[in-house]
Design a binder for these strands. Sequence first.
DNA 1: ACTTTGAGTTACTAAAAGTAACTATTAACT
DNA 2: AGTTAATAGTTACTTTTAGTAACTCAAAGT
Lengths: 145, 145
Amino acid sequence: MSKLSNTEVTNTEDESVKEGEKMKLILDRAKDQSKLCPVRDVINRISDKWSLLSILALGTHGTLRFNALKKEIGDVSQRMLTVTLRNLEEDGFVSRKIYAEVPPRVEYQLTEMGQGLMQQALQLADWANNQLPEIISSRKKFIKN
Amino acid sequence: MSKLSNTEVTNTEDESVKEGEKMKLILDRAKDQSKLCPVRDVINRISDKWSLLSILALGTHGTLRFNALKKEIGDVSQRMLTVTLRNLEEDGFVSRKIYAEVPPRVEYQLTEMGQGLMQQALQLADWANNQLPEIISSRKKFIKN
DNA sequence: ACTTTGAGTTACTAAAAGTAACTATTAACT
DNA sequence: AGTTAATAGTTACTTTTAGTAACTCAAAGT
């Protein structure tokens, strides 16, 4: 089935580290609250209302200034866009270039890693799109019962 | 009803619908708040603190009773696990079987679609794992400046 | 001297996530 | 008979997070 990684996860070793093994490791990590879990981390980052939208918008446009991005997304407030972009910047998904002008100009774009994240998001989105009918029908049934 | 097309991700059509096109459609959908967006939907569902963990736990164990799942996850409260499972059930990612016994027995397991979601999650997790060093170093730098 | 512009902050309110303590049911134990 | 134990939840409450509206700053245009 689906190739499990796009960036050559596994090493010199053979492919015998299978899904099951990997899954176990990931689960263990997720369960252990003491060390940081990349799954949770990434999920947490993109799980708010605006991160994915920002990433997708930047992905489609290449470079956008703050207000252009804001307009592109449509209904995000200034504060939330700022917060979102700071978070994405902190993790290295977007870069932020400030030009010392007045009025200020700030340009945002995806980093390479950000583009990778977008790829991931798109895959998920694609899958989600395909599942949508089933999800919707499941919800309808659930409400009935 | 029967599973409709969850293994059927990519269809009979040629591959000529490329990323760019797909991306645009997805973005448009995401931006239009009036119709439901599967990306947001799925992201929202798995973005809370416990959904992914539940899915991964069920994925590794096949079937689990409520308390077994609770123990497996470790630090989730009863209420949050209930809420999480209801949400996952509502969307058709997990199934819930109640046995009329005393004390009650309720068994949870992933549906086929739930397994698909887990695959998606694992891919994301795998990618995230690979990016972790870069994310961490990015965070360190960010704090400094 | 007053308004506009871009990219934010600040101070606040609404909503969501999370916790601790309670319930229902019946079998088993004392 | 009364108490306890087990499972799968609820209810009532508190803490966190998301979100909004109004403000700031510096220079240029009118």
